[in-house]
Nucleic acid binder design. Structure first.
Lengths: 245, 245
DNA sequence: CGCGGATTTGAATAGTATCAATACAGGTGG
DNA sequence: CCACCTGTATTGATACTATTCAAATCCGCG
């Protein structure tokens, strides 16, 4: 097991071209990697784009690679034998996709919107985790964040009304889609929903019809403004927040 | 930062008395610690017992220690301002209680049944994590397990009927309370529910009345036998499993 | 412009919550 | 040891929310 010499004084030109403008290098797991490690890893990486609905990683199917979400939204979902489906998480850039130390993921990862990912082989990443303890630390941090989010959503699924669920979803998207958005800001925010009504219903544990009715209700109450289908604008984020229960 | 010399050839007598019969040392996070580390950590540990309902760690309140669950069941819950509550997780021995790297937990940990914990200061444990990378690895493993469980439960909360929810809960308890139980076993299993109907309702996102009705229904259908209130026996675990959706 | 899938709207129904009353379990004191 | 008492659990009647099934409308796109 080699010692990894840490050198911070390396210019940007030593960083792989792929990584230079990547969000994951700053806020994601790659942030703890040295230029040398980035270069080594980048030898095995490939970028790919996924159209909405395209399955990225199947349920209980062997997973041989990890991927950073670079653009778009990925939905993680679970299904019952009879087809009932539940979206159990959404991944935004620069989140990491992949279940460490497990040969098969028990969730399905699917592109919700148009998605761009940066993929690297499972083995390459896991051996890097052994060399650079900071990387494992970062993975732990992200996993803890995901756990917090999952538990927040359990409260939504178990205890909120349909109306509160829809408001919570819109609030979640509003605060995650626009990186510039200051959560304390009360000004108008506008965004494109990264998924269709059916996916939203599966995320909220509701039917499409109920989601649609609640969106209509929020619109007539002037909490949101649906410009056209997926285009939503929120005049006052606090007012929306107050509808989340 | 000192190097930790690994010596495996140390007899049991070097292990702190507290740890000798502790489940956490075998299956829990303490399993990766060397006898020296165990001894060092045990200087700061204390055992405590909690009666049902006793709050172990409060929501958004500073957390200064971790704890291993040694006996009993701890429930983790979240609450809305208006009092609606959702249980977001159950901890059994030898699970670790505590949110790494965060000053305040956003969930409330409360003894569901009578609980015994082994507590150690946050700082002692976290500095040990820095020295022994295996410990952080173990924490990551447990966090990933919790995330899997949280997502499983999201499917239950979002997509299952009241009847399936209650069956799922009973199945979960049946397979977690009796460590001897082989899940593939079809023989009769009997156990004591570690919590009251109100807690069960908060775990399932239902009301007490609905939980009660569904238990009654499962009983009349001979799927379970309620000996007395908390004492449940399951003649055929597969039959119960089939009711989980 | 017209087609097809997505979304919204409508009416009837089912499932769960709510409110109220009763029954039960388990502990206490006579 | 039994009667009582208190909190927990069950049962009942009704209200209400969300689902289901069906139809209409909208949106994006060729």
């Amino acid at each position: 097991m080699g010692e990894s010499a840490l050198r911070k004084d390396i210019s940007n030109s030593d960083i792989p071209a792929l990584c230079v403008s990547c969000e994951a290098r700053h806020k994601g797991v790659c942030g703890v990697l040295t230029p040398e490690e980035l270069t080594a890893l980048s030898k095995h990486t490939s970028k790919s784009t996924h159209t909405p609905g395209r399955e990225i990683v199947g349920e209980t199917q062997p997973v041989t690679s990890y991927a950073n979400v670079m653009r778009g939204v990925v939905k993680l979902s679970k299904m019952l034998e009879d087809g009932r489906q539940q979206v159990v998480g959404l991944k935004f850039a620069p989140d990491l996709l992949g279940r460490p130390f497990s040969q098969n993921s028990d969730v399905t990862a699917e592109a919700a919107s148009e998605v761009e990912t940066c993929n690297f082989p499972k083995v390459a990443f896991e051996s890097l985790m052994k060399e650079n303890v900071g990387l494992e630390h970062r993975v732990l941090q992200q996993t803890l964040k995901e756990l917090d989010e999952a538990r927040d959503w359990m409260l939504t699924l178990g205890r909120k009304t349909a109306s509160e669920k829809v408001a919570s979803f819109l609030y979640l998207i509003a605060t995650h889609m626009d990186p510039e958005l200051d959560v304390l800001e009360t000004g108008t925010t506008q965004f494109t929903l990264p998924m269709n009504r059916s996916d939203i219903a599966d995320f909220l544990g509701l039917t499409v019809e109920t989601v649609s009715r609640q969106i209509t209700k929020l619109r007539t109450e002037k909490i949101i403004d649906v410009v056209v289908n997926r285009q939503v604008s929120v005049p006052n984020l606090h007012a929306l927040r107050n509808r989340c229960g």
